[in-house]
């Protein structure tokens, strides 16, 4: 018997705890300063004070959400096309191109995109999407291809159309594998989105870059900790 593994290791307790810590970090600056003062006793400037952290985390989340949704939509469509009878001949070449996309550093993509797309969030989103389509697409392909042939054949024999087989059999059975890809992709996105600061798209990269520029590790940590928390929350919530 084929065993069905839901493959999702959600951790509601961990998510709750991490979210509480993140909320405290973002909203209660005096507490954050106390922590940072304890860790970096030598620093005079402990936090980035030209804008509140809520703004940066908002921008960051927006970049991740928009980039993630575009990548999920395009990656899923792409994956489904290459496992369909029409797209199957292109399966290998498409996966290779997507792999290439991921191997190009996102900074390079942004640098190349700025002349045509200008500064701001658009070059970042382009880089993030190119960067994160692969994990989604690869996992859609792997997930659909992992569905037992006997299951799909039985569906066909009982009179399911191709679409019914896809929606009722292949997608739900591929879902655990697809979710693994989406989780990986979002975690990558959270860290890649910090580069948004380079081309003026904001996000948690702003305090991090500022800290790096002034050799101030406290300010780096001020922006990096919430990014790490965000990545951990996404990883455990999905």
């Amino acid at each position: 018997m084929t065993t069905y593994i839901p493959g999702i290791r959600r951790n509601p307790f961990g998510v709750g705890l991490l979210t509480a810590v993140l909320a405290l970090w973002v909203l209660y600056t005096p507490g954050v300063e106390a922590v940072l003062r304890f860790i970096f006793p030598g620093e005079t400037r402990l936090v980035y004070d030209r804008s509140p952290l809520t703004r940066f985390i908002g921008e960051h989340l927006a970049l991740v959400a928009v980039g993630g949704i575009i990548a999920i939509v395009l990656g899923t469509i792409g994956g489904l096309i290459v496992v369909s009878p029409i797209g199957r001949p292109f399966r290998d070449i498409v996966l290779r191109i997507a792999n290439f996309g991921q191997s190009v550093p996102s900074v390079a993509i942004m640098a190349l995109a700025v002349p045509s797309l200008g500064y701001g969030s658009r070059p970042v989103l382009l880089a993030l999407v190119i960067y994160s389509i692969l994990p989604v697409m690869v996992n859609v392909v792997a997930g659909v291809e992992s569905v037992p042939r006997s299951v799909v054949e039985a569906g066909r024999g009982m009179g399911m159309t191709r679409t019914e087989r896809l929606i009722q059999l292949e997608m739900p059975l591929a879902m655990p594998v697809i979710m693994t890809g989406i989780r990986t992709m979002l975690v990558i996105l959270v860290s890649a989105a910090t580069l948004g600061a380079v081309v003026g798209a904001g996000g948690l990269g702003v305090p991090i870059m500022s800290g790096i520029g002034s050799f101030n590790n406290a300010v780096v940590a001020y922006g990096a900790v919430p990014a790490i928390l965000l990545a951990l929350i996404i990883d455990q919530a999905l």
Binding site: Y4, P148, A154
Partner: peptide, 21 residues
């Protein structure tokens, strides 16, 4: 049409092909 035809013919196979989910 094949789908219509198949819905009116019972079909059972060795590997069962039960839908695991």
């Amino acid at each position: 049409p094949p789908e219509v035809l198949r819905r009116h013919i019972g079909y059972a196979i060795q590997s069962v092909g039960l839908f695991p989910h």
